[in-house]
Amino acid sequence: MSEAVVPHTTEKRAAAAPGWFRRALDSDLFYSFRRSKITMIAAGVTLLFFLLAIFASVLSVQNPFDPAQLQLMNSRISPIWTADGQSPFLLGTDEQGRDVLSAILYGLRISLLVGVLGVVLSGAIGILLGLTAGYFGGAVDGLIMRIADVQLSFPAILIALLINGIAKSVFGNKLDEMSMLAVLVFAIGLSFWVQYARTVRGSVLVEKNKDYVAAAQLIGLPAPVIMLRHVLPNTTGPILVIATINLALAIITEATLSFLGSGMPDTMPSLGTLIRIGNGYLFAGEWWIVAFPGIALAALILSINLLGDWLRDALNPKLR
C-alpha cells in the first residue's frame, strides 16, 4: 500500500531547503500561488503599477502639471506608432500639449494614493467600531451594527457622492487639490468600513467568552488588551482579503467620483479625471487621450481583483 501515496513535487523540492523557507514553500498559500499563473502575473502587474507611481517623476518626459513645461505646439499629437506620432510622446499628447504617458504616471500616483489611504482609513474605522461593538455589546453594539446594516444596503458610490456634496457645501465649492484629496479619502473611508467592522466584531464575540480572557482579568490584566492580542491575529487573513478587494473598489470609487466631476480637479488629475477630460475628445477622433488612462485603470483594478480573488480562495479552503 505504500505506493498508494504519491507525494507532490512541491514537497520534494522543498525538502532540501531549510527552516522557515521550507515551511513557506510547503504552505497552502504558496502552493496555490505557484499553481495559478494568472495570480503571479496579477501580482507582477500590481507591483509594477506601484513602482510606476512611486517613480513617476523619474520616468516621465515632463511634469504634465507644470504649465511651464507644456507647449501648445505639441498639442493633440497621436501615439508614436501612428503616422503623426512624435518622439518623445509615446502615447501622444492632449489638447494642452501634455504627454499622455506622463499624465498617466502622475494620475496613477493620485489614484493609488487615494485608494491606499482610503482603505487604511476605512480599515481603521471598521476595526475600531468592530472592536467597540463586540466588546461592549448591548446598545452600543446594536447601534453600530444597525448603522452598518443600513449603510451596507446603499452603494458606496452614493454615500461617497453625498459626503462629497456635503463637504463642498460646508467648505465652499472651490477646494484646493490637497483638500479635495482629503475629502475623497474621507468619503471612501466612510463608505467601506462595514465589512471590517463585521469581521472584527464576530471574532471578538468568539474570543470574549473564552477562559483566557477571564483568567487574564483574574490576574489583573486588562481584558481588552489581551483580547486584542488574540482577535487581531485571528482576523488578519479576512482583513487582508477585504482590504485587497476594497483597494480595487476604492480606486474605482475615486475614479468614478473624478469622472463625475466630483473628485480630483483638472489641475491635479487622477486616472478618473484624465478619462473625464479625454472623453470630451472622443468624438473628435482623439481616442488616445481617453483610451490609455482607461486601459491603465482597468489593468490596475483587474490585477488587484485577481489578487484579492486568489487570496480569498487560498485563505478560505472551504470555498475551494
Binding site: 500500500m1 498508494a4 501515496v5 504519491v6 507525494p7 507532490h8 502552493y31
Partner: peptide, 10 residues
C-alpha cells in the same frame, strides 16, 4: 487528491 491517489476501497 493533492497528496496523491488514495485507495478508499481495495
Amino acid at each position: 487528491s493533492r497528496r496523491g491517489t488514495l485507495r478508499a476501497v481495495n
